[in-house]
Design a protein around this nucleic acid. Structure first.
Lengths: 199, 199
DNA sequence: AGTTTATATTTAGCCTTACGAACGATAGGA
DNA sequence: TCCTATCGTTCGTAAGGCTAAATATAAACT
């Protein structure tokens, strides 16, 4: 998300921000969100996070294009690929979109022969989405924006630096997601783990 | 962006997942979450970044909804608000979208009375987008997903922790964006610094 | 059994975001 | 003046999202 405004006030006032009221001292200078003012650490950390979001977001668009799939489609495929299959319900839970949206996403992936729909035997209300070889191939070869841009650099860092980065990133991630979005309770993002479920 | 596959390396087995098969080696592991295969630090840092992306992405949707504007619209407004005005060209450069997209975004914002279009006097090809009081108000009060979720926690941290986080995040942000995206050459994201402009 | 309630997915209709291509209006040279 | 580059808009098309409603099934009650 953009950035600028850098949360208006220095610390404390996360709130409303009476706008004008704040560049009080001398300096009229319009609303141009402060700048110059010494950024405090909260500002700096937010800016850095936004830079991270931004570069991945933008890069993700070109990435997806190169793969012939959109970023969202790749994400669906990756989730299905974890175990070779998944239900629409599960996928949309993990991606935080509605079932209706998932249905049309799957339509498109199916049309591209990346996945197939197989009705479940146990419960005929559910559909099993299975990945096709083409789909698997797409997942395997799809470049990952983070990987491409980041991995090499990360791995060239000193050991202690890597450790520190990991620790900080995990901390920040928790700060952001522990509070949030029950929509994606598991947040199993990485899948490692993957309790390999119900198999 | 999703995640799974965890970067290239171990990659291969993104598939079926023979489950147990994987924690083969001594596998000390345990870092928190189950995972078996010992995640190396590159993995961990990627996962953390993805968690960050994911929680902001999802949360951004609800945020925008609450504000009556979409996340993209808020971003446009924020850019315009920095100096009270901006040209479509500049905004789309900074957001990394096409001029066509920007045009329709501005149409909608204009319809909502958040911005106005004023033809430039110097060069009649350019339009100055100026923010209205309503627009400014929207920017000022729009909750920022990062702020809301993150600021309080950040500010409750120890001083040294904050410092470390800032330093690491900035490092990571550079690693991600220095390489990239000519689409947005300047990538002035934060803009602070910003010459505070012509004012 | 029969009825109600709950679940899983799809359909239908409607936005917003994006793009590329084509276009009109200008600016700036040559 | 004519040519070319810019800026912004319009058009057509597609993806991704959502809500509400429709379907089909499963489960729980009576």
């Amino acid at each position: 998300m953009s950035l600028n405004s850098t949360r208006t006030g220095r610390a404390k006032d996360t709130d409303a921000v009476p706008a004008e009221s704040r560049n009080a001292p001398g300096d009229a200078r319009l609303e141009g969100t402060d700048h110059r003012a010494p950024m405090d650490r909260t500002d700096k950390s937010l800016v850095a996070i936004r830079r991270i979001l931004r570069s991945t977001e933008l890069y993700g668009r070109e990435l997806a294009k190169a793969a012939g799939l959109t970023a969202v489609q790749i994400r669906v495929l990756q989730i299905v690929a974890e175990q070779g299959r998944a239900t629409p319900k599960e996928i949309c839970r993990r991606m935080g979109v509605s079932a209706a949206t998932m249905s049309s996403l799957l339509d498109r992936l199916q049309k591209k022969r990346m996945v197939e729909r197989h009705p479940s035997a146990h419960d005929r209300r559910v559909t099993n989405i299975v990945i096709t070889p083409e789909g698997q191939h797409a997942v395997d070869t799809a470049p990952d924006p983070l990987q491409q841009k980041y991995v090499k650099k990360f791995e060239s860092l000193e050991d202690w630096e890597q450790a520190m980065i990991v620790s900080v990133l995990e901390r920040v991630a928790s700060m952001l997601d522990e509070t949030g979005i029950e929509a994606s309770p598991v947040l199993d993002i990485g899948d490692f783990s993957s309790k390999t479920g119900p198999f």
